[in-house]
Amino acid sequence: MSYNLLKGKKGIIFGALNEMSIAWKVAEKCLEEGAEIVLTNTELSIRMGQIKDFAEKNNVPLIPADATSEEDLERLFKEAMELLGGKIDFILHSVAMSLNVRKKRPYDNLDYDFLQKTLDISAISFHKVLQTAKKLDAINEWGSVVALSYVAAQRTMFEYNDMADAKAMLESIARSFGYIYGREKRVRVNTISQSPTITTAGSGIKGFDSLIDFAERMSPLGNASADECANYCITLFSDLTRKVTMQNLFHDGGFSSMGMSYRAMHQYNKSFENGETK
């Protein structure tokens, strides 16, 4: 069901790769809600994924750009404004990658060059997006910028590795830049801390299936799906949330407020039924 929440609005979606991507779901919802959008990702991701098919099917511009490159970002914003006929109203930052995770380097034996890439791609790119947009005055007053985060920014999550550091930095950037952008341009900046969600990036984390199951058992409402996350993003892009900024908003079925649930405790106790000592 469409509510026309984004009718007349224009935005840029970073990071859609394939149908598993939250950014892909957000792009679909934006179109359903009446928005005009531009999609962007790296040239390699465009070649590897299916986002080109999405763009062609929906007659949506697709502009290759590396979110870590200020030159690429400046070109992206200028081209997007030209194609959309003016300033934009919203941005989704869904960009993350860790070579340490991919190479299975444990947190106490990180490759620091890999760590720098993790931070640059997964967090510093968010600052670059915001800084470039502000310099170009690319976002309309009362515009909204959202980045996707995870509870590992606040809590230690097994095997989430240096991505936890990146998410903590991402949320800090949202607060620090959100103050400046809100004060000077009335632009909102927030992060959404989403439930563990099966995506191409998430599936590379060791034990991710177990993490999803644990979160499902712990959350009173269960894990939030990619589609549900997309719906939440839409509300933050809309005019209904004009005074929400500098927030890390948990969208996780209540997981972030839980200590121990009945279902998780029940499963824990079952593990001792074979005569093991508690």
Results as ranks from 00 to 15, higher is better:
L5G: 05
S69P: 04
A152L: 13
N161Q: 03
K185M: 15
D89Y: 06
M258T: 07
E184I: 14
L76W: 02
D137E: 14
S271P: 01
D239N: 12
R155D: 11
T235F: 11
T199G: 13
Y179P: 05
S203I: 12
A166N: 08
K52F: 03
S238V: 02
L73T: 09
Y3H: 11
K278V: 14
K104T: 08
E228G: 05
N100P: 08
G202K: 08
E159G: 02
D252W: 03
G254Y: 11
I13Y: 02
G8P: 03
D111Y: 09
D66A: 03
L221A: 07
A226L: 00
Q247T: 06
N41V: 04
T156H: 12
C233L: 04
I37G: 01
V146R: 07
L119F: 08
M260I: 15
Y107T: 10
G204Q: 15
T277I: 13
K57V: 06
I173D: 06
N161W: 04
F237C: 05
M1V: 10
I37V: 13
T42Q: 03
L240P: 00
A168E: 12
N231T: 00
Y268L: 13
Y268Q: 07
F208W: 09
H266Y: 13
A201T: 15
H266P: 00
A201W: 11
K29N: 09
Y181W: 15
G259W: 13
T245R: 04
R188C: 14
A133Q: 04
F158H: 06
A35K: 08
D108T: 08
L240H: 05
K7P: 07
E33G: 00
E171L: 08
K185T: 13
L110F: 05
K117G: 01
G182K: 07
K134D: 11
S238P: 02
L211M: 14
A152W: 14
L236W: 04
A201V: 15
M81P: 06
S149I: 11
G85S: 08
G86H: 04
D66Y: 02
L170I: 08
L39G: 10
T42P: 04
S69E: 03
S21K: 05
N231S: 03
G86A: 10
K7M: 11
V244G: 08
E71N: 10
V26M: 05
M265V: 12
G143K: 09
A65Q: 03
N269C: 08
N223T: 09
S21I: 05
